[in-house]
Design a protein around this nucleic acid. Structure first.
Lengths: 187, 187
DNA sequence: AACAACATGTAATAAGTTACATGATTGG
DNA sequence: CCAATCATGTAACTTATTACATGTTGTT
């Protein structure tokens, strides 16, 4: 099972928004999704080198203002690699957020399906939390840990319930985007 | 900067609740906090071996029913190592949940302080999200990505706001535990 | 002149995941 | 007797983090 490499798609996806240097990529990540994923130079630069070797990005040295920059742009091949990854099923918990971030490259219908599937997962998680609570209830009342274990499980409930609310709002927003009829990338 | 090793404290903390085998530890994690941390046998068994070498846990082979188990119990030294880690400041985002899980080993006052500090961090995150939105607003309207980037940032808002609600409820619950006056581990 | 920020990169280390290997016991 | 679960462990691999190294440019 070949695993997706996230730095690879983060970099490719951001270059799908606009051409950037490694340094710019780090700045963009810090400015706009630092809390979901972080990525260091130790991952960015080697990733850019590999992507370039594979022909998924093209390098362009810019020397106008400041120190010279290596500005990378996504190629046709890179774009189709990105889009093909976007279509694949998600494997990690918040991978959907990354895909949504690059959502203008996916047909609205597919995006909505994916968001709804994410919602289903959150509902399933809530069900599993009930089983966790059953397990916790089964512990003897004398266990001093017991109330603390419950508090931790309540964090899960808050988390998953808020995600379900987000799903509802997001579906609404996606429909608004569709209704406004801006052209988007399809397959 | 020596970094905390999580498998180490997960294992030590669980053994602080009750003696268990490596297999039991995995079962316990799966049953009660699979969604916050996962841990595989590939991490549990080597960790147990190290903890045993350091004298933080004691091994006890049990052969009564089923295949023979290696049941590990925490030692005095192990307990004080655990408690000293519990007092230290948190370094990772959800580390507080792990500490709260072992909360009966900490004085209630310190636990409350830590939860409030976690709440402060969530509030700070909300402030930073506003800066993210400023950044997103600065992007040209023609960028087809723009609405998607906003939806992702809204996920952050849902997340942090629900955590703030959880903090409020948790403080209340901790005060209830204190009021019920069960004896707990102090310094 | 000094300092912050720009800009690119490598090497070493730490952590996490997956696959593999082995064998005992229990329930149907 | 067969499958599932119990039970322990290692090796290989992938991924992520940290520290280091180097040099430029703009601001005070």
């Amino acid at each position: 099972m070949p695993k997706v490499s996230y730095p690879r798609y983060i970099v490719l996806g951001l270059l799908g928004i606009q051409p950037m240097s490694g340094y710019d990529i780090k700045k963009w990540v810090d400015a706009s999704f630092r809390f979901f994923w972080d990525i260091g130079y130790g991952q960015i630069y080697p990733t850019l080198r590999v992507l370039e070797e594979e022909g998924l990005v093209r390098i362009n040295i810019v020397e106008d203002s400041g120190p010279k920059k290596k500005v990378y742009a996504i190629t046709e091949e890179g774009l189709s690699t990105l889009v093909s990854w976007l279509h694949q099923p998600e494997e990690k918990e918040l991978e959907i957020l990354l895909k949504l971030y690059f959502g203008d490259k996916l047909p609205g219908e597919i995006l909505k399906e994916k968001i709804l599937a994410f919602g289903k997962t959150q509902k399933d998680n809530l069900d599993i939390l009930e089983k966790t609570d059953d397990f916790l209830s089964s512990l003897p009342e004398s266990k001093t840990s017991k109330p603390y274990l419950r508090i931790v499980s309540s964090f899960g409930r808050y988390t998953y319930e808020s995600r379900l609310e987000w799903v509802t709002e997001t579906i609404r927003r996606l429909e608004e985007i569709e209704a406004s009829g801006i052209s988007r990338g399809g397959k």
